[in-house]
């Protein structure tokens, strides 16, 4: 019995030592991607959300484009910090990528108490895939039938208008804080656990309004149960046609969260180019675009350079809002 255990242990020890030899043997790198060497795309969330869906759809296309296996690995935890940390810790060789969502990633490295091992400089942006713009909505029979009267009511009754959002520090909550700052009002945010429970509370009349992503509103807007007052896009949100932006109504809120693919900083430029080019070709295909739009996601492709610029701009605009929210 003891001998059996020791034998198992010895096997294990031998197996740990072996990789050294292999690692030395394959140190000579070839062009990217090496044939048959799999690329791992980390999704820092559990399976089942929009990010996961886009990752799986894109990975399947990337596999055909590059002729190497592309595996999706769900590494949820700590509001995506676990999965992003494991990507940042991996070798910057292009074989480990991750789906990165803004503003989530900013809430990691701008909040000192989270001890994130990364900042913006730790990432090599590769391609931005899609954007989500946000909106505020009220029940169809609400006394506030337009955005201006809604804001006026919030101004007259500070901290009285109850607004459902998807949870503490989620994008709808961040948007609500930006709206409060821009319009000089105070709402009473009620933090739900995701968009669906927030919508249930809105329809049930437990809150006066809801802050959420465009696709959160599509079913109920179509059936006339709710009224969407304003969107945070620069113009119109394609998911919510005909609804004016907050900017056009004199409240300066511009808030598009973005999801893209990034690698650890230090990834060779040629490798970045290969991945960026492949993703650009995928994003141009109709089948990829149709799959995303069907799911309620608006594609918005950007190459590595534009993505990096967008990231910086986003951090400069939204960062101060987040800092103020942490301090509270």
């Amino acid at each position: 019995m003891r001998r059996a255990f020791l034998a198992g242990f010895a096997t294990a020890t031998a197996a740990i030592m072996l990789p050294w030899f292999f690692a030395i043997a394959s140190a000579q790198a070839q062009t990217f991607p090496e044939r048959g060497r799999p690329i791992t795309l980390i999704v820092p969330y559990t399976p089942g959300g929009g990010v996961d869906f886009v990752a799986r759809t894109t990975a399947a296309a990337l596999e055909r484009e590059l002729s190497v296996p592309v595996q999706v690995a769900n590494r949820p935890g700590a509001g995506a910090q676990v999965g992003i940390t494991s990507m940042i810790r991996s070798r910057p060789d292009g074989y480990t990528l991750a789906m990165i969502v803004k503003p989530t990633v900013l809430t990691h490295y701008l909040d000192a108490s989270r001890n994130a091992i990364y900042t913006r400089a730790s990432f090599q942006p590769i391609a931005h895939l899609y954007s989500v713009s946000y909106a505020v909505a009220v029940p169809a029979n609400s006394p506030y039938q337009d955005f201006r009267s809604f804001i006026a009511a919030a101004r007259a009754n500070p901290e009285r208008i109850k607004i459902a959002d998807a949870g503490l520090m989620t994008a709808p909550h961040v948007m609500l804080s930006m709206l409060e700052r821009a319009a000089g009002v105070r709402f009473a945010p009620v933090h739900f656990n995701g968009g669906a429970p927030a919508m249930a509370a809105l329809l049930g009349g437990h809150v006066e309004g809801m802050s959420g992503g465009g696709s959160d509103f599509v079913p109920q807007l179509g059936s006339g149960q709710i009224k969407v007052l304003a969107v945070t896009a620069d113009g119109e949100d394609p998911l919510l046609p005909g609804i004016a932006s907050m900017r056009s109504m004199g409240v300066d809120v511009l808030f598009n969260t973005g999801t893209g693919i990034a690698a650890p900083a230090g990834t060779p430029a040629t490798t970045v180019q290969v991945l960026e080019g492949a993703l650009a070709r995928i994003a141009a295909t109709e089948i990829w675009q149709r799959a995303l739009i069907g799911y309620g996601i608006t594609p918005r492709f950007m190459g590595a350079r534009d993505y990096a610029a967008f990231w910086l701009d986003f951090e400069q605009r939204v960062g101060p809002v987040l800092q103020a929210m942490f301090a509270r």
């Binding site: 089942g48 869906f53 696709s215 599509v218 079913p219 109920q220 179509g222 059936s223 149960q225 799959a291 069907g294 799911y295 309620g296």
Partner: peptide
């Protein structure tokens, strides 16, 4: 619900 949406079916009363 994702499967519904992808197939152009919006769940809800309609």
């Amino acid at each position: 619900m994702g499967a519904f949406m992808m197939n152009g079916l919006t769940p809800g009363p309609f």
